[in-house]
């Protein structure tokens, strides 16, 4: 699976974003993390192969969160659906 890594100096938390390449909210989320110098990884779900898409769907569903984007996962436990600045800030504090 094509996972992109965006380097940053803030490595305090493990941040992963499920996004769509066409989605403006996802883009905003990526920019927000970049501006905060947070290191993160992301995958654009709309660009995945069928096999990888199946994996991502199973992964998201197994976490019990809706199949919506962006989905921000912090330290493997905090899950935020949508670009909710306050929640992301809170989880990154």
């Amino acid at each position: 699976m094509k996972i992109q890594k965006v380097p940053g100096n803030n490595k305090k938390h493990k941040v992963f974003v499920y996004a769509l390449s066409t989605c403006a909210w996802c883009k905003k989320t990526k920019q927000f993390l970049k501006d905060k110098d947070v290191e993160y990884e992301y995958v654009d779900v709309d660009l995945l192969s069928k096999e990888d898409l199946e994996k991502v769907k199973a992964e998201i569903t197994s976490r019990g969160v809706p199949l919506q984007f962006p989905l921000i996962i912090i330290d493997d436990k905090v899950m935020i659906t949508g670009f909710r600045e306050d929640q992301i800030n809170g989880a990154l504090a």
């Binding site: 769509l20 066409t22 989605c23 403006a24 909210w25 996802c26 779900v45 709309d46 199949l67 984007f69």
Partner: peptide, 20 residues
């Protein structure tokens, strides 16, 4: 841009923020 990409990709401008 997202709408245009989807129109090219799928033949119709589906919502850029949803999986199509």
């Amino acid at each position: 841009e997202g709408l245009r990409t989807n129109e090219e990709r799928y033949g119709y401008p589906s919502c850029p923020c949803r999986y199509a």
